[in-house]
Design a binder for these strands. Structure first.
Lengths: 154, 154
DNA sequence: GCGAATTTGTTTGCTCTACAAACAATATCG
DNA sequence: CGATATTGTTTGTAGAGCAAACAAATTCGC
């Protein structure tokens, strides 16, 4: 034999841990997301998709509000916005009411791209939730939200 | 009012997306994991914990086998092992049968630390799964595994 | 058995996420 | 108006992750 047939791996207590299942599933889902977009010749991360949706649905919001909505630091947001702006998807408009903030908005190209992206995301979602009924999927999302609310920092 | 009472955020289709719920939950669970360890004066990531468990339960395994088990590239593993080795938790022993590979093993200090870590992980798990019954938790893990198997890269 | 192909661990280079601290510009509070 | 807050940015640090190249060791093919 070329390789000894791979000794069965002992994962100890890991398979009983919710956090472990979450981490592995998240990793696989991320890979599927990336593969879905790559096959369509597009480039986008799940985080960027979420950001674009938030800006589209809440046009004029500030970077601070967006950072809070995304749960990341405002300094982390800067290079991400730079990239999306460089791709022509969004603009940092001057706010008419507050000279410190930027009023974020999608460009027409950004809107068009987002529509394309949303179609890919739906296909991706359909695949990863493939084995589950619609009711099961909703139940899973509900359980995940319950876990998220229970896991508060502190 | 100091701040206009925070306009209700429109998340569009995001709340119906499994991937979105997964990402947010994973992020909150990670934060809870870090906070649990920080409060106990320990420093460890979920990935490092998983690595230590795998090495403990499969003493002598190679870096390639470990990287495959973790689903990461072997070059990604190197700095992680370096750090854990520098902390005195594990050793890269010479393999008696294959001069290319390292036989990974925990040190006695590593075993002791892992026992401590496992207690913290159980407390963390208890909190994040707090709102769920034992049966619900098992069901959730099962659903997550189903999603993970459905999300294959390509 | 010996040369060719493969495997393993490492290094280097690159990208991305993420936070903290400091800073200038602007708003707001007293 | 002066002191304090907030916002966006820059810089520094740390970590995860992949790809490509490389030396050492093993295995394959003949």
């Amino acid at each position: 034999m070329a390789r000894p047939p791979a000794p069965p791996l002992d994962r100890g207590l890991l398979p009983s841990l919710l956090g472990y299942a979450l981490r592995r599933t998240q990793s696989a889902v991320f890979a599927d997301f990336a593969a879905t977009f790559a096959r369509a010749g597009e480039t986008l991360t799940p985080g960027e998709f979420g950001l674009l949706v938030l800006v589209e649905r809440n046009a004029g919001m500030s970077q601070m509000a967006l950072a809070r909505a995304l749960g990341i630091d405002r300094s982390t947001l800067v290079p991400i916005l730079n990239r999306l702006q460089a791709r022509g998807f969004l603009l940092r408009n001057a706010s008419p009411t507050d000279g410190r903030t930027h009023a974020l908005a999608l460009t027409p190209a950004g809107e068009k791209a987002l529509a394309r992206f949303a179609r890919l995301v739906r296909a991706h979602e359909k695949r990863i939730a493939g084995g589950l009924s619609a009711a099961e999927t909703r139940a899973l999302i509900e359980l995940l939200d319950k876990v998220r609310r229970a896991a508060r920092p502190l």
